[in-house]
Design a protein around this nucleic acid. Structure first.
Lengths: 228, 228, 228, 228
DNA sequence: CATGAATGAGTGTTCATTCAT
DNA sequence: CATGAATGAACACTCATTCAT
C-alpha cells in the first residue's frame, strides 16, 4: 500500500521563484502544507482547498502530484519517518559517554529533531487517524516505532551491560517509561499549547528532569523487595 | 458554552423495550454510542447514522436529544469528566499507607476507572479534536486536567513533607512524568492495540513498573551534582 | 378531491373548558390556528408543530381530525368560502337604494366581512399556493370567485338597466376594476402592513374613494370617442 | 443586508457551450431559473435541485455563485427591480400628450415591461414570502414600490395642475386605484391562468378600460355632494 | 504544467406522520 | 380521545475529484 519511503523532505527551505526552475520542490511544499493543515484540523476536517491555499497552488495542482487526499496523507507520513531513524542510528553509533548521559542526550536530540519541529504533528496525526487508516499506522509502526524502540533497547542494554543500570526485567516497560514523556510532550504541544503556561511546560527542562528522575528516583527509601 | 456537567452515565445497561418507557435512558445510550464511534473514527469522519445505528435508534432520535452533532460531542466529554475527579478526591482523602504505595495505587486506580474502560477514548478524542473545538478543550482542561494535577500535587507534597520523597524542584515536571505514562497507555490502546502484543503492553504491570522506576531509579549510581 | 363544503366556521368564539364538553369545537379551533400560521408563513414553511401549538393541542391531535397537512389546508379554504357568498347573496337580495350606493355598500360590506377579518388570509394563501395545489384553487375559483363575480354582475346590470350606469361593454373588465381594489387591500394587509402608515392605507376610506372614482371619474373632460 | 442592486439581467439568451467560457452568464441564468421555480412553487416548496435542473447546471454550481437558497431569492428580487424604475422615470420624463393618455400609456408600458414578462412573478413572490423574509420585502418596498408611487404621483399632479383632472384629496388612494389593477392582473396571471378564459382577461384591454373608467366613470349621474 | 469552474455523491438536519401508552 | 417519542424520507449544502482551457 505504502510505497517504500522516498525522500520527500517537508521542511526544505524554499527560495521563491514564481513558476521558475525547481519545479521539483512543488511536491514537498504541498506535503509540508498538508502536514500543517492535517495536524491542525485532522484528516477528515481538512479541505483540499485549505491545503492548496497554504501551499500557494491551485486545488487542481494537488492532483497533479498526489492521486487523492488519502495519498497525500500517506506522503506526509512517509516524508517524516525515515531521516529521523537514520539520525538516531548515527547518534547511537557515535555517542561516547556514560549511558545515563546518553539516555538524556538521546531524548533531547530526539525532541530537537522531531518534537520541536513541525514533524511533531505526525505522531498526533497517526494517533488521531489510526482508526481510519490502519495501513498507514502499520507502516508508521514498522518503519518508525519498531526501529526507535530498538535504538532505545540498545542504549538500555549498554547501561545494564556496563553495570551503570540495574538489570531490567521488562524492557518494553522501561522503553515506554522513557518514550511516553516525549510523546506526551508532542501531544500537549498540539492540543494544549494555549492552556499551558511557558513555565509549566518547558520541553527540554522537562525531559532532562524526566530522565533524571527515571535514573535516580524520587524516593529517599530503598525499594521494597517485591520489585518489577 | 458547555453547561455544568450533569451526571449522564454512559454505560447504563438497558433492558430493551422498543417504544415508550425507558426514555430517560435514551440520552445516555446515545452518548455512549457516540463516544464509541467518535473515538474510532474521529468527529469529522463519524456519520450521524453510525451513531444512531450503534445506539439502536433512528437518526431523527439523535436530534430529539441533542441539537447537533457538535453538541453530542460536548455531551460525550461532559459525561465522562466529573465522576472521575470525585473518585480521585475520595481516594486521596481516605488513603492510608506510604506515599510511594499511594502514588502507585492512585495510578492504578486511575487506570482502572478510566483507562481500562471506554472512557479512555475521551482523552484521545480531546487531543484529536483540539484544533477544531477549542472551547471543549478548555472545558476539559479546566474540569479535568487542572483538578487531576491538583490531586497529584497533593500526593507528591505529602511524600516530600513526610520525608519519603526528595524535595521536588519543578512540581509540574514531576506530575507530567507520572501522568505521561497513563496518557500514553490510553493513546496506545486506541491507536496501536492491533500492533502491540499482549506481553509488550500489560497496562497494570507497566504502570506499576513505571511508578517503581520513578521512585527508585534505573541507575546504580548517585546523581551527578548538577541536578534539576 | 374537495368534499362539498361542510360548515366548519373558523372564527367561532370559544369559551374555554379544558378537556370538557364541546369536543366538537376542536376541529374548528385547529382550522383557525392553521389559517393563521399558513397565512403568515405559507403552506410549505409552516410546521405542524406550529399549528398544534397555536391551537393548544398536541401534534398528534391534528391527525385525529385531519388526515394530512394538505387536508388541513383544504379544510381551511373550505371553512372560509361558503358563508361569505351566502351573505353576499342576502345583501344583493335585500338592498334598496341607488345602484351607485349599492356598489359602494357592497364593497364595504365585503371588506368588513372578509377583508377586515382573519379570513382575508385565504385569498393570499390561495394565490401563494396556486402552483402547488391546483385542485384547491379550482375549488376556490368555482365556489367563491365565480359566484362573487355573478353577484357583482347582477349589481352592474341593475345599474345599467335602471339607466344609472352607462352601458358596459366588457363586463368582466369592470368587475375586475372593482374587485382588484379589494384584493389589493387584502394582499397589502398581509404583506406590507409594517410598511404602510395608517394614513396611507385606511381600508374603508380607500374603498369608498375607489368606488367613487370608478363611478364619477377623475377627469374634467368628456371621454374621447374611441372608448372601450 | 441586500447589496446595492447590480445589473443582473435575467433573460440573457445563451449560446450553449458545456464547460468553460460563458461563465459570466451563469449567475443570471441561475437567477432566471430560480425566478421561474420560486414563482411556480414558492420559496419553501422549491428544491434547489429543481432550480439547478432548470438552469441546466448541477446543484453544486448554484452554490458556486450564491451562498444559500435565501441569497438566491434576494438576487432574484434585486435583479428584477432596478431597470423597471429607470424605464418608468424615462417614460415620465419624455412623455408628451394629455395626462389622461399619459396615465393609460404609463400603465400599459408598465404592464408590457413587467406584467407581460417573467418578472411579473416577483410581486407574487414578494407577497407570498413577506412573512418569512421581512428584509427582502423592505428592500423591495423601498427600491420599487416607493419610487413607483412617486412616479404616479407625478403624473396625477401633472393632470391636476393642468386642469385635466379634478383635485385629488387622498393621493395615495388614487394611486392605489390605479396600481391595484396592475397588481391584480399579475397575481391572476400566476394563480388563475388556467381558470380564466382568454376573453375574460385580456390584459391590455382590461387596463385600457380600467384607466378609462377611472378617468370618466361608470355613472351617468353627477357625484352626490358627500365626496371623500 | 497549472488552473479553477463544474460536478454529484454524501452528510447533517428537519419535519410530516405514526402509534404505544 | 389525546399525547409526544420515534421514525425515516427528503432536502440544503459541502467538498473531493475531474477536465476543458
Amino acid at each position: 500500500m505504502l510505497a517504500s519511503p522516498n525522500d520527500i523532505a517537508s521542511d526544505t527551505p524554499v527560495l521563491e521563484r514564481k513558476r521558475g526552475r525547481r519545479k521539483d520542490a512543488r511536491p514537498s511544499e504541498i506535503v509540508a502544507a498538508a502536514l500543517d493543515v492535517f495536524a491542525e484540523k485532522g484528516f477528515a476536517a481538512t479541505k483540499t482547498d485549505d491545503i492548496a491555499a497554504r501551499a500557494g497552488v491551485s486545488k487542481g495542482t494537488l492532483y497533479l502530484y498526489f492521486p487523492s487526499k488519502e495519498d497525500l496523507l500517506k506522503a506526509v507520513v512517509q516524508a517524516n519517518v525515515v531521516s529521523l531513524i537514520a539520525e538516531g542510528r548515527e547518534f547511537v553509533r557515535t555517542y561516547s559517554g556514560s549511558t545515563g548521559d546518553m539516555l538524556r542526550d538521546f531524548t533531547l536530540a530526539w525532541w530537537r529533531a522531531e518534537g520541536a519541529t513541525k514533524q511533531s504533528a505526525v505522531p498526533k496525526l497517526i494517533m488521531s487517524e489510526a482508526g481510519n487508516f490502519p495501513d498507514i499506522v502499520a507502516y508508521y509502526f514498522n518503519e518508525k516505532i519498531v526501529p526507535a524502540e530498538a535504538l532505545i533497547t540498545g542504549i538500555l542494554e549498554r547501561g545494564v551491560a556496563s553495570g551503570e543500570f540495574k538489570p531490567i526485567a521488562r524492557m518494553h516497560d522501561t522503553i515506554h517509561s522513557i518514550v511516553s514523556a516525549v510523546i506526551f510532550l508532542m501531544h500537549c504541544k498540539h492540543s494544549f499549547a494555549a492552556h499551558l503556561g511557558e513555565d509549566q511546560m518547558e520541553p527540554e527542562t522537562f525531559l532532562t528532569n524526566h530522565i533524571h528522575t527515571l535514573l535516580h528516583g524520587l524516593s529517599n527509601q530503598p525499594p521494597s523487595s517485591r520489585a518489577s
